[in-house]
Write a protein that binds this DNA or RNA. Structure first.
Lengths: 332, 332
DNA sequence: GTCAGGTTTTGGACCGGTCCAAGGAACAGG
DNA sequence: CCTGTTCCTTGGACCGGTCCAAAACCTGAC
């Protein structure tokens, strides 16, 4: 009835439990005939190693915790995919948790991971309270992926190069002939970088930039766009801090009777599935989520192998994804 | 250097490790002064129980595995939320895995959970291979949430009542005065139920129903809509099998010069965040994801407490969410 | 036939908890 | 003061693996 243990296997194969353990861990110090006997017994009994026992004695779990900022934001999906394959080939499994789901309980979101004894931690996106990460990072190899907030010492940060991505947008709009452009800005470190890159590149090209703050929602984008487009001397192009906000701009434009891209060009950021909807077909910036995930995994693996050192910053090159919401300005 | 164990705490508090264990498990058989001494020692040493050791000796992990069909489909987010709170109050943690991420390796997706020794399993959405669930379900209390495929014996199924939801749509369109309506159908058990409920309710009201097959993507919805709306005698309303498909219908309508809802009413299903975008503002059916998750959690908890029995089917009542894409037909 | 040297195999300690039977303390009644 | 209870504590076995030092087994050489 009870699942078989290594000792049951040993008895069946007529060897000691130590030998079974050796075989299961792939030692080459075992005579082939014994190995076969053990493997046969394993098969016959349907033996599965007990992960709890193993991690108890090995003092590691072969598991890394992945703390997601918010499952509702789908931009991280690609990142997870990139994270998964290097970890998997290294024999590590991923364990996901949503920082928001746990928050209600008042606990520090990474705590379950600490209790579970994961070997490492990947934080995806911006945490509600980045400072809370420090005590965890002291005990656990930690990598932050997709956020740019200042990280505790010894933590690697991997992210897309938001400043460069925003410059791509400015260059694209300038090349189309836009002279008067707006940026709908957000809060947080990532948004600040996007704004900075965009403003710098636009100014270098002598463009007029007006910045309007918003939160990172569709609603916020809509409100900001209404303010922006209702004023005299309205811009011919808008760069929104993310795709969600850009969708808000699109709906505001529609309500104001502006056709996109004829009367107004709109650019988002993140290349979420939203932007790929043919109904929206939003020009946006792809921030190389897969690449970010891949490099975050490599960073973590490095640290797990003992190569510690100070936290480094890795940036992946973003790419402009030109779709249907940008074109030359009306006056050009 | 090493994290403190229960024995370190015992030594510090001047008691035996057994007493520490009693205190930590909240026994009332302990004299208050000893309890305080133990708790103080725990605090001073920063002791955290070792989950691996605990599950090894308790023979359970206080963890349930949640197997997601596909992280890219966001409809399950609400469901997860509903799942989380009952489990959390029962002292169980959730462990997420994506069936697609692991599939590449050729392994059965629930296997990592088996090795990890989770106490129960929640399968969210339709699995690539439902039959693969049977061997797992024999070993583990299992609940399927949000799918309607036939489940192995002893597995509870919790889902929204898709047939009833689809009836709501038919009633809504009939009440608006539509007489000639179309359904864009999908594959799978859920899609079949939606189609059945819709057709039955429409026929009862003497409506003309034409059904067009599609896959469950935006692209598929678009193509189906083009076929449907290009023919003579086109319907005045379209009920799409899900929101994604409905968005495809919207874009097709736009390209054909049909205004929504003036020339064409469109209804989706799932009430995803997509439908809530004011740019789309899609009339849709909310399938009570939170409720489904909640009831799935209760089912699992019941089974964990030994109340086994045959698998039951629980249906949650869906609700129509009327937004901007439905209205009276032109001819009415 | 014995022995050195290498290869396989094994028993037992250990990882950090839980659990239980038995031991000790305290207190009431005789 | 002794005894029987009740209440609190404790030592030690156990969960199912890993790991290591020592034992057992070979092999070829002398």
């Amino acid at each position: 009835m009870k699942p078989p243990t290594i000792r049951d296997v040993a008895e069946r194969a007529g060897v000691s439990k130590s030998l079974v353990s050796l075989v299961l861990r792939g030692s080459d110090q075992v005579r082939p005939e014994k190995r076969d006997a053990v493997l046969a017994a394993v098969r016959e009994l349907g033996y599965r190693p007990n992960a709890a026992a193993r991690s108890l004695s090995e003092r590691r779990t072969r598991t890394v915790g992945v703390l997601l900022h918010d499952l509702r934001n789908p931009w991280y999906v690609e990142l997870l995919d990139g994270l998964n394959s290097p970890l998997h080939t290294a024999g590590l499994r991923m364990l996901l948790a949503d920082a928001r789901l746990g928050r209600r309980t008042g606990h520090e979101p990474a705590e379950p991971f600490l209790d579970l004894g994961v070997d490492g931690l990947v934080v995806v996106g911006t945490l509600p309270d980045p400072a809370a990460l420090a005590p965890v990072a002291r005990r656990l190899p930690t990598v932050v992926a997709g956020a740019r907030e200042p990280a505790p010492p010894g933590v690697d940060v991997v992210a897309g190069d938001d400043e460069a991505g925003a410059r791509l947008v400015a260059e694209h709009l300038a090349a189309l002939g836009h002279r008067r452009i707006a940026h709908i800005a957000g809060h947080g470190a990532v948004a600040a970088l996007r704004r900075r890159g965009f403003e710098a590149a636009a100014r270098e090209r002598g463009l007029d930039v007006v910045v309007e703050p918003a939160d990172l929602t569709e609603e916020g984008g809509h409100r900001a766009a209404v303010r922006l487009l209702g004023r005299p001397g309205r811009p011919t192009a808008v760069f929104a801090v993310n795709d969600m906000t850009a969708v808000g701009v699109l709906s505001a434009a529609g309500e104001l009777g502006l056709r996109v891209p004829h009367d107004l060009s709109v650019v988002g950021y993140d290349n979420t599935s939203l932007a790929r909807l043919r109904h929206l077909w939003l020009t946006t910036v792809d921030n190389a989520g897969h690449e970010v995930g891949h490099r975050a995994a490599r960073c973590l693996l490095d640290r797990l192998e003992g190569r510690g050192g100070a936290g480094r910053l890795h940036l992946a090159a973003p790419a402009l994804e030109v779709r249907g919401t940008t074109g030359p300005p009306l006056t050009a």
